[in-house]
Design a binder for these strands. Sequence first.
RNA 1: GCGGAUGUGGCGUAAUGGCAGCCGCGCCAGACUUAGGAUCUGGUGCCGUAAGGCGUGGGGGUUCGAGUCCCUUCAUCCGCACCA
Length: 985
Amino acid sequence: MEYNFREVEKKWQAYWAQNKTYKTEDRSSKPKYFVLDMFPYPSGAGLHVGHPLGYIASDIFARYKRLKGFNVLHPMGYDSFGLPAEQYAIQTGQHPRITTENNIARYREQLDKIGFSFDWDREVRTSDPQYYKWTQWIFIQLFNSWYNKKSNKAENIETLIAEFERGGNGSINATCELTETFSSSDWNAFSEKDRSDVLLNYRLAFLSNTMVNWCPQLGTVLANEEVKEGVSERGGYPVERKLMKQWSLRITAYADRLLTDLDALDWTESIKEAQRNWIGKSEGTSLKFTIAPSPEGEGRGEVEVFTTRPDTLFGVSFVTLAPEHELVEKLTTPEQKKAVDEYITFAKNRSERERMADVKKITGVFTGAYVIHPFTGKQVPIWIGDYVLAGYGTGAVMAVPAHDSRDYAFADHFGIDKLVIILPPVDWDFADKSYDEKEGKLVNSDFLNGLEVKAAIKKIIAVIEERGLGKGKTNFRLRDAIFGRQRYWGEPIPVYYENGIPKVLSENELPLLLPEVDKYLPTETGEPPLARAKDWKYKGEFEYEYSTMPGWAGSSWYFLRYMDAHNDKTFASKEAFDYWQNVDLYIGGAEHATGHLLYIRFWTKFLNDLGLIPVAEPAKKLINQGMIQGVSAFVYGFAVGIDGISSEQIISKSIPKMKKFIVPKSSYDNYQKNGADSLLNKIIESELAVWKNNGYTGIIQSKELTSLIPVHIDINLIDSVTNILDVEQFKKSDRYKFLRIDEILCEENGNYICGREVEKMSKSKWNVVSPDDIVEQQGADCLRLYEMFLGPLEQSKPWSTSGISGVSNFIRKLWRLYHNGDELNISNEPATRPELKTLHKTIKKIAQDIENFSFNTSVSSFMICVNELTEFKCNKREVLEPLAILMAPYAPHIAEELWNKLGNTESITYATFPICNEDYLVESSFNYPISFNGKTRFFREYDRSLSKEDVEKEVLNLDQTQKYLEGKAPKKVIVVHNKIVNIVI
RNA sequence: GCGGAUGUGGCGUAAUGGCAGCCGCGCCAGACUUAGGAUCUGGUGCCGUAAGGCGUGGGGGUUCGAGUCCCUUCAUCCGCACCA
């Protein structure tokens, strides 16, 4: 009988659950190993085949480590706060908790079917009050902390207050917005509100007025990494810049450490590089320009700029301010006021998306004011331009058109001088472009003349500092993380306001439960949904904070909770931290490079600073699994009807009086290429005739109306090989009804061939493949092996089931190896040398592969192994028992079954990974000593089929030998296929 | 523009600097048969009847020897992007 995977998989999954086979010991004499997956957001679409890719890899590793004698922590949980459940709640009124619980139940069911070795007793859910209690608690620690640059760590705010009381803030070196100084007597005289305001400048969780990314459609602010190309990452809605009072986390305090500590991490270079770019450290100089006095003769202060190229100071031909710069209003001369006001209005109304879309478009305006060049004394005009960002550096730059491409473009556009002060070492046409390289000799630069750029930078910084014009400064691109979200389904920020002063809840008041609301929408007055709550903790007593935490809050420390998931005294015990330390292997998608992976490092460092945990990094090693893409299917729709409505509207919405068609791919291709298609023209003409016959005269054809657009349809309606659409099934589908297609035009042979394209797998693209189907049809082990077999873990690849039959065959072959018909067929005779060679070769390869995370090649090795053993007709226990153990990480169900059939009573989980005996592998070649020129002896590797005489003859007769030896003693002769290919001296 | 990655048969892919294409899919031929979406055997990089020749995006280099190392160039994908 064939291997019955359904029965076997069900049996062992039940066994593992019942016996808690994968329960992790809190303490153990074994060494620990922590394998972590990025926990999923439980979306309504369920798991697709891409999700398990990383989980299977981590599961293989975890199982392997167990077999190697480690106490393995391999947990799973859910990142269960988030927008989709809330959007669903807005539409349907169903509480996000219900939606989330349903989705989690579905995820769990799907995960269980794949046979993961998670310790479910440690499951965490970020939306569970027992969990978010500690998320809130960590927020409170952040609020109660400041960053002391002297000790280079976060400290309790009390130490700062004590310092203020003693000597004011003069000698404090903190990460802080505040520029004013005050003395201890000032401090003592401050009101409570003043003190609170001052402290907010130091706290690591703080309230401030900042420019935020506001998304009107979502009704919330978004963090920088939640905005992609000017639109929201979730939903794709436009985002605008807006000044709002917001909670933020002072991640910038950790910028330097987040950057330098990357070097020691065993993470992929691309992630490290992405984080480096995101942090964006740049070393330069701040420089103050005195503003030329107004005509009335009054001084007007200074403009401070930041530059990485102080050496180009003599090439400055103007200074540019960001439109939002605070000096703009003060500086602008009456003559220029109108132009400047107009420009500022223009810049403000230009959405972030527009601004990014036409980066090339140069806009700006002259303020009418000047600064005085600190060395030449010349007047330098001050301009405003939106190519200067308010949020970076000082929001002002010194423009050196000849040596900075952006300044060049601006100067070119407005006809400003470009003074060359660096002679490029190569031919350079300054009429064409700027020379930005840091190489060449300076000219026209007074005391810098003749110096190389690097020397000039050194010298000018020294002079600038000496004259008090500025000083060396490091800037980061990283912004503080905006922490408040004007949404419902998140952790409430545990803050209330007493006389306008923000105060955090005390620990014993946690968790601050998410209150019930009647609707999940903002209030009429524009307050976030939480303002609707009737029974809030401080309702009627104090004002409370309405915003909730962002999605990344709960995921920024979850790895710690797994260590001690049920602790209700603390976020996890010290003993647990001391034992588990941090994650040894973290597997997840690369898309979290500048979001989650930065925040989790930030929180870990913070908790470490406070002495709460013993490690400063969350994960030693990080592997990014590639994305499994979907292969979408398209039909090509267009509509005939009234002018003025775009095809997209017609196809996606149902607009009356439109007749909608879909046409085959050939028409679409032809249309894309030639802009016309006779088939389409025919349809349009005949439709127009019908409409005219009905007395309708208002139809006007336009290009827009006839343009074809691809429409996603469900891939399950397509034959995966021929791409032929099952038209009958399609007509029955909801999708068809939704699109309200009137006619489907097929090709001449009656088939409708769809277009295919590789895209991200997503419900909205109708290309999701669920792992359930594979598990149902081929089994979990087959899915596991196949997903690994697909290619290197880190590579993205489209999902395709072609080739799954190979894996499926392999599993059956494996089964047959242990059976003769229905009977188990195992011999206790000793194995032959070739059999052992096959086994040990495989042991070596599998261990190597797992350590190197090249799981795809292991599957090949298993296939080779089984093929060879089948050929040998090997049924020896000595070989087949270790083979089952080798298989266990990859295909745990069948391995467990075979293990059990071989008479083992304990789960294979507790077996020991076999050790490779290299002796079996060196059978066919060996080292052999040979004399040469009567005195030297050396070793050579050669094929056994060669006799000693052959070898000696060959070596001595070789030209190469004479050429390369020249009397020296060779160390090794390399022979391949009976030919000497190298002699190593 | 900056940064990261990847280029090998019809396809997914494999090769501590040592016979390029393992393993699988697909395809071709055959065997068996209870006629199947089963199993087994053989073949399958390209050109050529063959001998043989050519082959890892292109061009150079290092090396006895390069898919692999170095330089250069092209192409594709991903991330960041007016960051001074």
